[in-house]
Write a protein that binds this DNA or RNA. Structure first.
Lengths: 343, 343
DNA sequence: AACGGCAACGTTAACGGTAACATTTACAGG
DNA sequence: CCTGTAAATGTTACCGTTAACGTTGCCGTT
């Protein structure tokens, strides 16, 4: 591999001039620039990024921190983000957050080791790790969770209005005539308090709110079953929920993966969806369009979430404008999994 | 951030000794080691990886090159690989291969810039890029494609026996009594020649072989429809295939994503699966267990593929043993998408 | 002719580590 | 008491880049 010194030798100029050419500085004669660029191409030279990082104590990369164990939805967003970053001529580096770690400490480690110019958080929430996050000073973006309430000047966020969209989803059930509605997903604590960036809790609360507004009784003991966002968990939780309360006619699952698992569970229990029981999901994952029955769900605009997130980050890296918090419109997808309640 | 010099100053030893402690060398007194380690902890010092890389012209990282636009299957393997690498105390860096790039040039760029100690290729094939690949001298592993025939000394491979498994899948259809069988997936060229690491072609050929062996006629014009590995493509291709040849009673889709799209298409055409038409998939993606009907498919052992791949790579990095090519047993999953043919 | 200014380029000291080499110290053996 | 040896530690030359600074040579002024 050629180094900057080789380029200098071969081109007959000094490494200083070569460096200037590489970094696109003005004070180089056209002649020198042409010659040096020729040699660079000829030698197929690529600057050593370690040396660059060491010297500038910054890299040209963007780090993406993903919390997504088996989360199809986030993986699809990740892919779009990657492509989008590439389109802008930047390079990204993905760090997955393990079961036992938290996203902020993963990010902190990345900051120290990789010196990225910006960080994109995908999924997860920062609220628990306020002090640690404060150590991160480079521009950050949180996608799929709202960071407005956290008050970090360097953290933008792009999100779907989870509370409103969840209400929308449940109101479809209500509109169809359902009055015994169950909720699947989130944590046992999700019914209690709520931080602004706790997405599962927001969806659960949005659902409960619209039920209350419509005078529909909701008993946390009988009408709610928390579960992690995996099809298998959704499958199990759906069975538990219906065992607790066989009267339910409509189900709101806070994630499509849970909804799809639930549909399977209901079928295995001998119930037809939507004839015997209706199901609404949330996310609009790729497969929800091909499931049997097609899933009625809230489709998040993953392309806009990803694209706006990336663009905001790159903007703020270049011009250090201030952080923004934007809600991206969602789309209600009318599938085949909701019908009038039985009886 | 503290540097090695700070540690040296604070501890009263020279940077040389500090470096020795960091790198766990023997020739340091216990006293010095204790003192230095104390200061390191106190200052919460982490060696600058760029400087390290620059000096040693090597990194401590493993690069993962993924070809997987919307490929759920590979994404699940990727996750396991990541976790596995982490378990071994190593760190990984993921590079996605874009639409227009090829995996080898992405890898080559990574080698130049990131200086990884090893590369894991996930999906994709090397055969087209033999000369370029030859430039890569560090240990590599190819997962989900067989590199045995390529003859690279530094490239191990772990794969399912795609040809045999595809034959197995199709033989299930035959066993149920199907004699008019269609194939979905792969490229138009897949019917012609085949390189050892061209997975779609291997599956198509394996399927055709078992049909021939059983005296079942196969007309490429009427019984085959190539398509890319996305549910939407599978959906469209399935419709085209059945339009060309409405007599088909059994379908082999070379990927589950295609199979699931196809099932949806058949339903939309008024056909019941499996009563009117049977479908077998390949991969065993997470969702195939929850689809309606549950998909009959070949389940690849993703955990073994990932784990063995990672372990082989780390082994070869440490002890430079020679490359191996191993086939991981698959499992036939009897779902609900295959039945006796109609009539 | 002397000078200032400027464009173009060369030089060199970092950046934070590592490893080869040099030095010091302690102790054993003659 | 001197010497040899080995262990423990210090010193320093790099690794490839960048950026601050220094050096040229040329031009236009006075």
């Amino acid at each position: 591999m050629a180094t900057i010194q080789d380029i200098a030798r071969f081109s007959g100029y000094s490494i200083g001039t070569v460096s200037r050419v590489i970094n696109n500085r003005a004070d180089v004669s056209d002649e020198a620039r042409a010659k040096i660029e020729e040699v660079i191409k000829e030698q197929n030279y690529q600057p050593n990024s370690s040396a660059r990082k060491l010297r500038q104590s910054i890299s040209s990369e963007i780090t993406i921190v993903v919390r997504g164990n088996g989360n199809i939805f986030l993986q699809s967003v990740l892919e779009i983000i990657q492509r989008c970053i590439l389109e802008h001529g930047e390079t990204a580096n993905v760090q997955f957050v393990g079961e036992l770690e938290d996203e902020v400490s993963v990010a902190l480690q990345a900051v120290r080791q990789l010196k990225p110019r910006g960080i994109i958080f995908l999924g997860g929430s920062m609220d628990h790790f306020r002090e640690e996050f404060a150590e991160i000073t480079i521009p950050c973006v949180l996608i799929t969770a709202d960071a407005e309430g956290l008050g970090f000047g360097n953290l933008s966020s792009f999100t779907t209005n989870d509370r409103e969209a969840a209400a929308h989803a449940v109101s479809t059930l209500i509109w169809h005539g359902h009055r015994r509605i169950g909720i699947l997903g989130g944590f046992p604590e999700s019914l209690r308090g709520v931080w602004s960036d706790d997405v599962p809790a927001l969806r659960v609360l949005g659902a409960i709110e619209v039920m209350e507004k419509n005078g529909i009784p909701f008993d946390p003991e009988r009408d709610y079953e928390p579960c992690s966002p995996l099809a298998e968990e959704g499958y199990q939780a759906a069975k538990r929920l219906l065992l607790k309360n066989p009267d339910l006619t409509g189900i709101f699952a806070i994630k499509d993966s849970i909804a799809l698992g639930a549909i399977r569970a209901f079928r295995d229990m001998g119930l037809r969806v939507p004839k015997d029981i209706s199901v609404v999901g949330f996310d609009g994952v790729l497969y929800s369009k091909y499931s049997v029955p097609r899933l009625t769900t809230i489709q998040q605009d993953v392309v806009a979430l990803a694209r706006k997130g990336v663009e905001d980050l790159l903007m703020r890296i270049s011009y250090d404008s201030s952080a923004v918090h934007e809600q991206i419109p969602y789309r209600f997808v009318n599938g085949e999994s909701v019908a009038r309640p039985r009886d």
